[in-house]
Write a protein that binds this DNA or RNA. Structure first.
Lengths: 166, 166
DNA sequence: TTATAATTTCAAAATATATTGAAAGTTTTG
DNA sequence: CAAAACTTTCAATATATTTTGAAATTATAA
């Protein structure tokens, strides 16, 4: 496999994976392209590399900035904006964990807490209560895990984790 | 909030959450309905409760069985098939972790290993190599975490985990 | 200030995904 | 075996999501 093929394969794989995660292909591929670029890239650059429209590039680059995965970079004497990706992959993971926690876990925790409070008098509502309790535990676990990733500023915590579950 | 409202809220919330995770609404709602039902339900039952078509119910019930989240149950003297959900929520979590690992993590691990092997001679390919190494580590971490959930047969392992990251 | 360059917005079009429902298939019963 | 009861399949339809591209907006330079 040549280097060019490898790049394409990575960009393509990243895009496919992302769609399974509710992230659109363009956004994932933009991220992939910027991740492996040693140089800042302009909007034109990424448009050309991925063969996507200006609007698409603009919107998804902005989303990537909202996620904290890429930054704008200005070049002196250049009017255009350039973009660079966050290259610390653990930081990327922390950002993603943080966003997903905020968007997906927190609302569910709130709903489950509300639903746990429903009186459990009939067989039906008792079953319901049991299920809500169980889900609370599992979601709490997911929440803890994401938090562990988010809070892990130093490597020792990560390596300790890896040790426990070797 | 009445019990009926709580049920609806749960079914709706579960369906919404699922779409963010690449699981379709019907499948998630079918799962929710069966989870909180103390009794086995027939296809007709779930069709009526969720107001979905026969084909939709049939296909998604089958998918849920493939995921190991629900089971068929036969009633004596009944010709129809009934369905019950796996009620052990930790088992549900393990099943989901197992499926997602198989479908999402494993293929990425393979691709990354392949791409890590690309010679790193130019600045571009060196950057590429660095990124692949970093991603390998992060994906490896996700893989370990999912494995921990999958392998956790006993509660002590889970509680130990929770302790580490309190 | 005006012209120019670059970026953002958003309605329309394209694409992808989910759902329906009727026909085909399967299993059970008499 | 044939009829009835039930389940599955899949082409057509509906819905949701993504992408485009041109117009509007904003920022910079002359």
């Amino acid at each position: 496999m040549t280097f060019e093929e490898a790049k394409d394969r990575f960009i393509h794989t990243w895009g496919t994976l992302a769609t399974q995660w509710g992230i659109n292909r363009s956004m994932a591929q933009l991220h992939a392209v910027l991740l492996i670029s040693p140089e800042p890239m302009s909007t034109e650059d990424v448009m050309e590399q991925l063969q996507i429209s200006r609007g698409n590039a603009s919107m998804n680059l902005r989303d990537l900035m909202d996620w904290g995965l890429i930054y704008k970079q200005l070049k002196v004497g250049e009017r255009r904006e350039f973009f660079i990706a966050e290259k610390d992959i653990w930081k990327v993971a922390r950002q993603v964990a943080k966003e997903r926690r905020r968007r997906e876990i927190t609302p569910v925790v709130d709903v489950l807490n509300e639903l746990k409070a429903i009186p459990a008098d009939t067989p039906e509502s008792q079953e319901f209560h049991r299920v809500m309790e169980g889900l609370s535990n599992v979601v709490g676990f997911a929440d803890n895990t994401l938090n562990a990733v988010i809070e892990a500023e130093e490597n020792w915590l990560m390596s300790q984790f890896l040790k426990v579950f070797r």
